[in-house]
Amino acid sequence: MTFFDDMPESTQGSRKPRPVRPAWAGPPSNELPGVLHIGEFLHSSERMVLALKLVEVYSTGCLLDLAWTVRRRGDSDNQWREVMDQGFNHPGSRTAWDSGLMVGISYADGGRAIAAQDVPAVPGNDDVAGPVLAVLGRGGGAANDEMVQASARYWLWPLPVEADTQLVAQWEALGVPESSLTLSAEELSAALANIRTYWSE
């Protein structure tokens, strides 16, 4: 007999089913999305570009991948430090509502949403009225003496396939006026055909 022979057998509790995430809260966890490579500018100037790189289309909604770059144009060191701080001031940050990047969506039926915070803080509630536009991930960023680059991802629910939708952005502190581009309902609908589920059962 060895030292561990008389150890009691482990008793594992019954496995509890994981709660199903509501559709408004984020993409399905078992889907590979259809991808639309948009590559369009929401704003472009000598100072800054703000672009929608791509859209990941899921059965319930889509992820919008925005990226921006600001370059130094005659700023003093103190001014540039302020620009660098502002370059990371996007939805989800504490000061974004006052001067940071504002992103919104406008549906053809008049529905709209503004991404001022993360997804609605009502876990387990399936009765959220859409549309929902929420910061779902902040990409990496980089800054140096000449340039600031950053990105963020936004979850849009429901998927607007009935009519074209307007994506709207504004960033007053960095000189970006209210600007918009159209999300094509036809292209979003076509991307649905490219979604693949991980498992059939």
Rank of each mutant, 00 (worst) to 15 (best):
M1R: 11
T2K: 14
T2R: 14
F3L: 11
F3M: 12
F3E: 14
D5A: 00
D5S: 06
M7N: 10
E9S: 13
S10G: 15
S10F: 15
Q12E: 14
Q12I: 11
K16N: 09
K16G: 10
P17A: 01
P17F: 02
R18C: 08
R18Y: 07
P19F: 01
R21Y: 10
A23F: 02
A25S: 09
G26T: 05
P28A: 03
N30M: 11
G34N: 00
V35L: 04
L36E: 08
H37R: 11
H37A: 10
E40R: 07
F41H: 09
S45K: 00
V49T: 12
L52I: 04
K53G: 13
L54S: 13
V55Q: 06
S59T: 03
T60E: 01
T60G: 04
G61V: 00
C62G: 01
L64C: 01
L64A: 05
L66K: 00
W68K: 07
T69H: 10
T69D: 10
R71M: 04
R71D: 03
R72T: 00
R73M: 10
R73T: 13
R73A: 11
G74L: 05
G74C: 01
N78W: 14
E82W: 09
E82Y: 11
E82P: 15
Q86D: 11
F88L: 15
N89T: 10
S93W: 06
R94M: 09
A96Q: 02
W97V: 10
S99Y: 13
G100D: 01
M102A: 14
I105D: 03
I105F: 02
S106Y: 12
A108C: 07
A108S: 09
G110E: 04
G110M: 02
G110Q: 04
G111Q: 10
G111F: 06
G111Y: 04
I114H: 10
I114W: 08
I114C: 09
A115G: 04
Q117P: 06
Q117C: 12
V119Q: 13
V119P: 15
P120A: 03
P120T: 00
V122T: 12
N125S: 05
D126A: 09
D126V: 08
A129N: 10
A129C: 14
L133V: 01
G137Y: 06
G141V: 03
G141D: 07
A142C: 14
A143I: 07
N144C: 02
E146D: 14
M147N: 06
Q149K: 12
A150D: 02
A152H: 09
P158N: 03
P158A: 01
L159K: 04
L159T: 01
D164A: 05
T165R: 02
L167E: 08
L167Q: 06
A169T: 05
A169H: 02
W171C: 04
A173Q: 05
L174T: 06
V176Q: 06
V176D: 08
P177N: 02
E178W: 08
S180F: 04
S180C: 03
L181Q: 00
L181M: 03
S184K: 00
S184G: 06
S184N: 03
A185Y: 06
A185F: 05
E186F: 09
E187W: 15
A190Q: 10
A193S: 13
A193K: 12
I195W: 08
I195Y: 08
T197H: 12
Y198S: 11
Y198V: 09
S200K: 14
S200Y: 12
S200T: 13
S200G: 14
E201G: 14
